[in-house]
Structures are given as C-alpha cells and as structure tokens.
Simulated scan of single mutants.
Amino acid sequence: MRITQGCFSFLPDLTDEQISAQVEYCLQNGWAVGIEYTDDPHPRNTYWDMWGHPMFDLRDPKGVMMELDECRKAHGAAYIRLNAFDNSNGFETVRMSFITDRPAQEPTFTMTRTDVGGRSQHYSWAATR
C-alpha cells in the first residue's frame, strides 16, 4: 500500500530534479523550507521529527537538496517530507508539503467494515507487515 499525503501524493515519486524544481518555486515565493522524517506516517501523526531548522534564509535550492541528502543518509528507512512555510501574514502557514522519500517496504493495512443497526457502519483496521 502506498501512503498518500500532501501534494503530488497520487503521482509517482518525484526525482531529485523535480524536487529541486519544487524547492526553487518555494524559494521564489519567499517561503521557508523545512525537512521532516518519521517512521509512523499515519495521517493523524502530525508530529514528525524535524531535520535541522527551517531554512528561512536560503535562496538556492542546492542548499535544501544538500540537507535532504543528509537526512536520507541518517534516516534512509523513514518517510521524509518537505514543507514550505509562508509567513507573509505574520504567522506560519504551510503552503506546500510532500513526501520525498519512503521506506522500501511500506506498511499495509486491512480495513473491515461492519454494518450495524439501520444504516450505521463501523470500521476497524489492522496493520500488517
């Protein structure tokens, strides 16, 4: 099963060249770029670990790509995502977020739907590896 979160989630994984083009777009808009990683990609897990600090002062995508490569070396078996933050309104707003890397073996889930009383339905799921 392929985890789908953020921009480009239903497209094939982006190449480094495509990631760099997206970073360049973010920097041209004045957005700060941050890199995060996790081994728990559940949609309700909003607390991914941050790699370094958000890069507020970069103007060249090569700097972000260097940090992404370092994160890949340290956490190659984790999910890694790139976030772009816009602070033009006086507070941080995520403008873009997408997964750049994923583990070779992604977790699989089984969902079971049970019909109960009237039109109600209960769902349960279990993770399998």
Rank of each mutant, 00 (worst) to 15 (best):
V33L: 03
M111Q: 13
F85E: 09
W51Q: 04
S88G: 11
P107R: 06
T114H: 15
I3N: 07
T38M: 00
T15E: 06
V33M: 01
I99P: 04
D57T: 14
I35Y: 03
D13C: 08
S124K: 10
C71K: 00
W125V: 02
M55F: 03
R113S: 01
T100Q: 02
E106N: 06
R44T: 02
T100H: 05
G90A: 11
P107H: 04
F91L: 08
P12A: 09
V116A: 12
S20A: 03
M1A: 12
R72T: 11
P107Q: 07
A78E: 10
Q5A: 06
F8G: 00
Y37H: 05
G52Q: 07
N89Q: 14
L68N: 03
W51V: 10
T110K: 14
P12L: 11
I35V: 05
L68P: 03
T46K: 11
E24W: 00
T108N: 09
I99F: 03
W48L: 12
V64I: 02
S120K: 06
N89S: 14
M55W: 00
D13G: 09
P61A: 15
W48A: 11
F10L: 09
M50H: 15
G34K: 03
F91N: 07
S88T: 15
A127S: 09
A77V: 09
T93K: 09
H53P: 10
F56R: 15
S120L: 07
A127M: 11
P43S: 05
D57V: 14
G34P: 04
C7I: 08
N29W: 02
R129E: 11
P107N: 02
P12C: 08
P61C: 11
T108V: 07
S97Q: 12
T38F: 03
P41G: 04
P41R: 07
P54T: 01
N45W: 13
Y79C: 06
T46P: 02
A104Q: 15
E92C: 11
P12W: 01
R119W: 05
T93W: 10
A127E: 09
M65Y: 03
R72F: 15
S9R: 07
V33A: 00
M65I: 03
Q22F: 04
F10N: 09
A104L: 15
K73A: 08
P103Q: 01
G118N: 10
P54Y: 00
M55R: 00
G76Y: 01
E70D: 12
V23Y: 00
H42M: 05
M50W: 13
H75Q: 02
S124Y: 03
N87G: 05
Q5H: 05
A78C: 13
D16Y: 00
T114R: 14
